Computed example of a mutant assay.
Amino acid sequence: MHASAQQAPSETDSTPAPGAVSLAGVSKTFGDFTAVEALDLDVKPGEFLSMLGPSGSGKTTVLRMIAGFENVTSGSIHLSGVDVTQVPPHARQVNTVFQDYALFPHFTIAENVGYGLRVAGVSRAERATQVGVALEQVRLSAVADRLPHQLSGGQRQRIALARALILRPQVLLLDEPLGALDKQLREEMQIELKQIQREVGITFIFVTHDQEEALTLSDRVAVFNNGRVEQVGTAREVYEFPATEFVAKFLGLSNLIPAELSADGVQSSVRPERVRLLTADTAASAGTVSLLGTVSETVYTGPTTRFLVDTESGVRVIAERANDHHPSAESAFGRGDRVRVEWTTDHASQIG
């Protein structure tokens, strides 16, 4: 799968600007095992791209090849049009933020953030100025003199981000940096991370196995499976119009409807929130696929309730309804109830 990173040409130059990162036919093997196979992927300048997939799908290996930590078996990697396939990590204009933050425990926060500048020989006065700006960007100016163990997990994550950004890389690589945070803090940091990326304007490539996280953060999502990219698109495109059965099943809940039950005669995907749940004696609506069945299970999630319906056609269909009724009221449907499930034909996306 190849997603173009070309921009519209200017009036004076018909040559498209190069992508921030371009991978052409990139493969990586470890002995007899192929971790990444013939991958083509372009990342646009200033874009937030998430590489999403299960463990072992190849996304972290791709990140490490972009960083230079892993050698490419075949293919090429370009940064802003420059071939860096054989360039060592320290000579690439990229930086990486890891899940464990890797902060120096005996350095103050200011010393941690300014470490890269110190190694680069930047003067003490200039380092202090740039560290102040970097801490302001992540909204942690007040903790400059503290040690890492005195900060919360979310604060340490932001310090690791500031340390990476202060060197002004062309591309920032993030390897599941929110994975160690609890759910509430993780959701807060997702918003913070997206806001920071917009402010600094640097290309972010983010690795995650969390579908909701990828949808929340990304300009585009590349969905990985078995060393290949199955689909690249905006969050809405990959969710609403999955290109393959894997994407439909991995990216949130989805009902896979066999060809014989689909209006257009091909396998399709219908998201549970698109499925209407009606009493069994309700007449089928025009322009819908409508099936009778029995509620086999209900799942209360807080904002919604999911209903698992075993239809007479032999297909289990999940319907999801918003809990917008009075809090003290019970759901209109329960286990064992005979119901009708239906969805409009244009709410189903063809698979394959």
Rank of each mutant, 00 (worst) to 15 (best):
V289L: 05
Q197G: 12
F250H: 13
L167G: 00
K44L: 09
V62N: 05
T96V: 11
L193I: 07
L253E: 15
Q6P: 00
S313A: 15
T34I: 12
V131W: 09
L23T: 04
G121H: 10
Q137E: 06
Q150D: 09
R139W: 00
V315P: 03
Q157K: 01
G81Y: 08
S331W: 14
P45T: 02
I159Y: 07
T288L: 06
A8K: 14
P54K: 00
A180H: 12
R186I: 10
G154Q: 08
W343V: 07
L174D: 05
V122D: 07
V207Y: 07
T15H: 07
T305E: 11
D346C: 07
T304M: 05
V84D: 05
L181W: 14
V266L: 06
V221K: 08
V131A: 08
A164F: 02
V339I: 12
V232E: 05
T61W: 04
M65I: 09
E237N: 03
L291D: 04
F224E: 11
I166R: 12
T298Y: 10
L41D: 03
V26T: 09
V299I: 13
T244V: 11
E70Q: 07
E297Q: 13
T34P: 03
P16Y: 09
D264M: 13
L261M: 11
E237W: 04
S349E: 13
R127P: 00
G287F: 11
A125L: 10
N323T: 07
V21G: 01
A110Y: 04
Q155F: 02
P327S: 11
S349G: 10
T301H: 11
S14Y: 01
V266R: 14
F104M: 10
L193E: 05
Q231I: 13
D100C: 01
A128Y: 08
I202K: 02
K59Q: 05
T61C: 07
L174S: 07
G56Q: 06
A142T: 07
G252Y: 12
Q184N: 13
R321F: 03
G265E: 07
A243E: 15
R146E: 09
A20S: 14
A128D: 15
I202N: 01
I202F: 05
Q137N: 05
V36F: 02
Q184A: 03
I205V: 15
G68D: 14
V84I: 13
S331N: 13
T282R: 15
D281L: 03
S57M: 11
V82I: 15
G201F: 00
A144C: 02
Q350T: 13
D83T: 07
M1N: 04
H209Q: 12
A214H: 09
Q7M: 12
E47A: 08
A180W: 01
R274C: 00
V207S: 08
S296W: 11
A284K: 14
V223L: 09
Q211Y: 04
T345R: 12
I318R: 07
L291S: 00
F241M: 06
A332T: 03
E188K: 10
A35Y: 14
R274Y: 14
E47G: 04
P9G: 04
F307R: 07
P177V: 02
R156Q: 15
F333H: 05
L251T: 15
G56A: 01
